[in-house]
Structures are given as C-alpha cells and as structure tokens.
Computed example of a mutant assay.
Amino acid sequence: MSAPVLYLLGSAAPPVLDIASVVEQAQADGWDVCVGLTPTAADWLEDDLPGLEQRTGHPVRSRYRRPREADVWPAASVALVAPATFNTLNCWAQGITRAFIVGFAAEAIGKGIPLVTVPCVNQAFLAHPQFPQSIERLRGAGVRVLLGEGGFMPNAPGTGKPKDYPWLAALSAAREALPG
C-alpha cells in the first residue's frame, strides 16, 4: 500500500523557515510529502528548494502549472496549509486565488480533499473585522482551523516565537483528517 500524500502548503511567515524539519517529521510518520509555497515563501527558501525537492522526491511548487504541462504531484490525501498568513487565509476564504497554494486550497474544498490550516497571525491582525469572518467561512466549508487553544496562539505584534509554532499539532490534525 502506498503512503498517504500530504500537500504541505506554506505562506511567508517565519515558521516556514523550518519546513525542512517538518517534512522530515511528516515522512517519519509515513507521509509522502509535496511542498507548495507562496511566491514570497519560495523566495525566502530559495537556497533550500533543491534540498526540499531531493528530500521529497517532488518539485517544490510556487506557481500554477502552465497549460499542457503535466501535473507533477500525486493526488493529495490531505492538504495542510501552514503557516497560513492573514493574506493567505483571507484570500482563500474569499476565493481570491492569485497564489498557487490558495488556488489549490480553494479548489480542494469543492473536491472534498481534507484540509487543515494553522494560522500565523498576530493579535493586531486578529482584531481586523475580516479575519474572524474568513475563519468562520473556512470552518463552515469543512476546513479544520487550528487557532486558539491546542493550535496557534496569536501574540502581540513583534513578539512572535517561530520555534513555538504548533507543527506537531498540525501534523497530528492532518493524520486525523485522513479518510477512513
């Protein structure tokens, strides 16, 4: 039996800098991992992309494929959107799909692919009137959002602790989301 496929889709927030260790953890848990990034996250990780591709055996994607270009990833069993920034979450909830990972996640709702997301926002973003609406819209669409106790706990602006990002809870939630 082949390994379940985890799409690990990250935005440009400091925890994305640890994505290589998250890939290792997921693989140790039996996942076949495909990494997708927003363009800015891909830029931040530019020097690490070849190693991620070698580690996963799949190209890292940060753009949509071109017409007539083959899909290079196996079908997703579960998608984990983490870290998910304010912009990523709001665009996803509103169907604004300029970024590949947001477009995939938006379409995955309609395809019935299990989705888990872990925000990475500070308390100032949390106070924006659009943010709670976006979270509720995603939850209403069946997305498991790990925000608050047991997930990501927003901090005051400028006081983030990327090493405290709940990657283990995210991977555990992805495992729980597997069909069957």
Rank of each mutant, 00 (worst) to 15 (best):
D48C: 06
N90Y: 04
W31V: 00
G140L: 12
V33M: 10
D47H: 11
A84S: 14
G110T: 13
R137K: 14
G103M: 04
D43L: 13
A93N: 04
D32L: 06
A93D: 04
T85L: 00
W44S: 07
Q133P: 02
G57S: 12
A99D: 15
L89E: 02
T88G: 01
G95P: 09
L138W: 02
L126C: 13
A99I: 01
V102T: 14
R55W: 05
T88M: 13
R65V: 09
Q123T: 11
I135F: 08
D71K: 07
G112Q: 04
V81Y: 00
N122D: 15
A124Y: 01
D43R: 11
P83N: 11
E136P: 02
D29K: 11
A79P: 02
G30N: 11
Q54R: 14
I109C: 08
N90P: 04
P132D: 05
R65Y: 02
A141R: 08
C91V: 02
I135N: 01
W73Q: 08
F100A: 15
P74K: 05
L45R: 07
D48P: 13
R61N: 10
P114I: 05
L89V: 07
A108H: 05
L37S: 11
G140H: 11
A79V: 07
C34H: 07
P50V: 04
S62W: 15
A42H: 10
R139W: 01
S62T: 06
V116E: 08
D48M: 11
C120V: 01
W31R: 04
T97M: 10
C34R: 14
F125G: 07
N90M: 12
R65H: 13
F100R: 08
V72T: 12
I113N: 05
H128F: 02
E69Q: 14
Q123A: 12
L45G: 06
W44A: 06
A41G: 10
S62V: 00
A124R: 11
H58S: 13
E107S: 14
A70Y: 03
I101G: 00
V102W: 02
V121W: 04
P67Q: 03
D32K: 11
S77H: 12
E53D: 10
I113W: 10
A28T: 09
L89Y: 02
R65W: 05
G51P: 02
A84M: 04
F86S: 05
W31F: 15
E136M: 09
L138T: 01
R55G: 02
L80Y: 08
T97S: 13
F86Y: 15
A124I: 00
G140Y: 07
G112I: 13
R139Y: 01
V81E: 00
D29C: 09
V35W: 13
